[in-house]
Every structure is written in structure tokens, then in C-alpha cells.
């Protein structure tokens, strides 16, 4: 993502400092992470000090300051999914990707995160890949889902 793309997002939000989180969310959405250059540009344009951006970007789990893999994998470990066997789904995902939650593999193919509830407990245990929800999975089915993404 280049400076022009960032400027476009900032202009879309009118360059208002109060919409900092919206701007950051959009950059995160397009770029999958927040590079330092992008944050510096946002700081300059919105006139928000870097310390504040740093605070916000580390506060919310939606933001990432390190590059993410092409496929973002979320495994729900909330109470409902937990009792329905989320830990075994997570094991299947870990087996397939070879990484722990919070990590990205060396080929930047997968990033794995655990989440605490996605609000659709009836579908548990849940596996979300690139925003697509896969519910009521067995560990074997979870492996099948992961294979589709390589």
C-alpha cells in the first residue's frame, strides 16, 4: 500500500482527527497490517501525535503492527465453542499450519488467532477463514477446510 492509497482513505474521512480509528481500520482492512510509514502519514495528516496512534494501534486487537499472512484464520475459543471441542479444532489448525495462535508462518500464508466469541454460538465450534465462517466442524472437517486454502 502506497502513500497515495493512504491519502485517499484519509481524504474519504475528511481528515478529521476524531475518525482516526476508522482510518486505521480501513488501512488494516486493505493492507492487512499497519506499516510504520502508514502510521506516520496518518499522524502527519490528521495531526494526531504518534504516541496516541501507537496507543490505539496496540490497544485494539483488530490492528496489527506486523505483516499478516494471506489467509487469516480465527478459531473461536469462547465458552460455547470450548465445550463443543474448540481446542481440538485449534489443534487441527495448528497441525495444518505449523504455527501457534498469534503467529504468522514463514511463507506468509496463514495467520492464526484465537477469538473469544463471534456471537453465533449455535454454530460452534467455529472456524473463520478470511471472514468466511465454517461451523459445526469436527477436527477432520476443520483439516479439510484448511486444505482448501493450501
Amino acid at each position: 500500500m502506497d502513500i497515495k492509497g493512504i491519502d485517499k482513505i484519509i481524504e474519504k474521512h475528511g481528515g478529521v482527527a476524531g475518525l482516526l480509528i476508522q482510518v486505521l481500520l480501513e488501512i488494516q482492512g486493505e493492507n492487512h497490517w499497519l506499516p510504520k510509514e502508514a502510521l506516520e502519514r496518518v499522524s502527519e495528516r490528521l495531526r494526531v501525535p504518534m504516541s496516541r496512534i501507537q496507543h490505539i494501534a496496540t490497544f485494539y486487537k483488530a490492528f496489527s503492527l506486523v505483516p499478516k499472512g494471506r489467509h487469516e484464520v480465527h478459531v473461536c475459543t469462547g465458552t460455547s465453542c470450548h465445550v463443543r471441542g474448540a481446542s481440538r479444532i485449534l489443534d487441527a489448525v495448528k497441525d495444518h499450519t505449523g504455527i501457534e495462535p498469534g503467529e504468522t508462518d514463514v511463507d506468509s500464508k496463514f495467520s492464526v488467532e484465537t477469538v473469544n466469541c463471534l456471537g453465533c454460538c449455535a454454530l460452534g465450534p467455529l472456524l473463520v477463514v478470511n471472514g468466511k465462517t465454517h461451523g459445526r466442524l469436527s477436527p477432520a472437517e476443520a483439516s479439510e477446510v484448511m486444505k482448501k486454502y493450501g
Binding site: 501525535p49 504518534m50 504516541s51 496516541r52 501507537q54 496507543h55 496496540t58 490497544f59
Partner: peptide, 9 residues
């Protein structure tokens, strides 16, 4: 100057 800030939560 905002040289120091909080991180994480």
C-alpha cells in the same frame, strides 16, 4: 511533545 505514550492494554 508526546514523546512517551502508553501501549497495549
Amino acid at each position: 511533545k508526546n514523546a512517551v505514550g502508553f501501549v497495549d492494554r
